[in-house]
Design a protein around this nucleic acid. Structure first.
Lengths: 176, 176
DNA sequence: GACGACATATACAAATTTGAGTACAAACTT
DNA sequence: AAGTTTGTACTCAAATTTGTATATGTCGTC
């Protein structure tokens, strides 16, 4: 089961919604930080899953608006897919690894300036997310949402650690 | 420029290849660990980029075999795309964050067993990659390839740190 | 009460991805 | 030498993703 589907099914758990509302709930959850879900994909997913019986077209709308609700099959499939995501370690798709793979094709000057820029951006991101966490606490969001941010910060710091260490070695000529 | 394209152009930098050889070079580089590149996409990418002038069909083959080589435009586009990947921090697409977002939909028992399994798998992965690094050193691979692994290990450790800490809090009932 | 700015809500064509399917040659088995 | 596995090399239809285009309501303001 694709992440797209899990996300759509997940926001429908608490009641039927139409496409636009699904998109907004996902945005509230901050999915754009760690997923790449285009609007069009939501409508496609809703339609497809309705055809497959995971969803019901609860209310065919005046003006094209359609409200979708979970069926029992859909609820079961969500659980199956969710457990799958917990148990399987799937490779994280990281576009930066692509950059890294070809670092030897850049000049030392290009490399060090890109790396420094990257370090700065990462430090900025860490600070932003840290603040977001403080903010949400007060805002009444469930505590497990903070875990997403906490994990995010750890990952960003891991990247930062790498860049800071690597830029030093590039300067010394040990890399690439 | 998509990661798919960068990867294909990247392996063609050192000389023309046919589709199957591109796929093998990518596999040697370990792209399957951090990218999701289906075989079909390689052939599609090659054909499309040839139509767009980034590649040349160097040798139309007997038996459908076609060898592609970089054009000057392709080489320039590769550089442009590579720099883009260095300068832009794109969100890492992490399917586990999907799992995390809906952690409150699982029972404590489901959660703790999934988390423990995950911790074990992560520890195993860290060890595997660590060994792979030691092995490659002797094998004569360029030093910057190790950097991919080094970053990988840091990211895995970040995930492990999170799981180990979170499973404790789930047990204490602080989560979700 | 008309106008523009903005939010709501979806549709759609084009591009890309997916992975099973095909085909054929080389190496190995019995 | 006939059969079987393995490796090479690509094709293709189906599914999915992407991003832009479109349509419609709503709110203030002049």
């Amino acid at each position: 089961m694709s992440s797209t589907r899990i996300l759509i099914l997940g926001v429908l758990l608490d009641g039927p919604l139409h496409g636009y509302e699904v998109r907004r709930r996902l945005e509230l959850m901050g999915t754009h930080h760690w997923a790449n879900l285009a609007y069009g994909s939501i409508y496609h997913g809703l339609g497809k899953m309705a055809d497959e019986g995971l969803l019901d077209r609860v209310e065919e709308g005046k003006g094209g608006k359609t409200v979708y609700g979970l069926t029992d099959i859909g609820r079961a499939e969500f659980m199956r897919g969710l457990l799958g995501h917990w148990w399987e370690i799937k490779p994280i798709v990281d576009p930066f690894q692509v950059a890294l793979t070809f670092m030897d094709r850049l000049s030392q000057a290009e490399l060090t300036s890109a790396m420094e820029a990257r370090a700065a951006q990462l430090r900025f991101s860490v600070e932003m997310v840290t603040r977001a966490m403080g903010g949400k606490q007060a805002y009444g969001a469930p505590p497990h949402i903070d875990e997403c941010l906490r994990l995010n910060i750890l990952q960003l710091r891991a990247q930062l650690t790498w860049v800071e260490e690597a830029v030093g070695r590039v300067r010394k000529g040990e890399l690439p």
